[in-house]
Amino acid sequence: MATAPKSHDHHDDHHHGIAHVASVRVLLTTWITLMFLTVITVLATKVDFGPSMNLAIAMAIAAIKATLVILFFMHLFYDKLFHSVLIIGGLLAASLFVGFALMDSGQYQDSIRWDVPAGTP
């Protein structure tokens, strides 16, 4: 394989050329974990922990899976800090969006008239 002119070592993982190269072991481990978590999350819904608890479990598993994908498949673990800042910034902006909208609509739900067909005065 060709050796690139510049190489920076900042990890014990091998690091060729201009970016980090993920090892097969890391990729496969991540993948197996992801598959395993998928099975877990499906199974978890079969058990009744109470509706909010079930949701919490499902979302927690999803968050773990997402983190794994981001860190290893997307190399963020080895990547520039700024890229993490970006993704976190994006999530923050999105959560602001969710938060404010939820805060507002939560307040006016009781004034919505679900019971009447539209067009009725």
Binding site: M1, H16, G17, A19, V21, A22, S23, V24, L27, L28, T30, W31, L34, V69, F72, F73, M74, H75
Partner: peptide, 13 residues
Amino acid sequence: SLTAAWAVRAAQL
């Protein structure tokens, strides 16, 4: 997703 990540590795190597 795995194969996509692996493709990157393969290209790098």
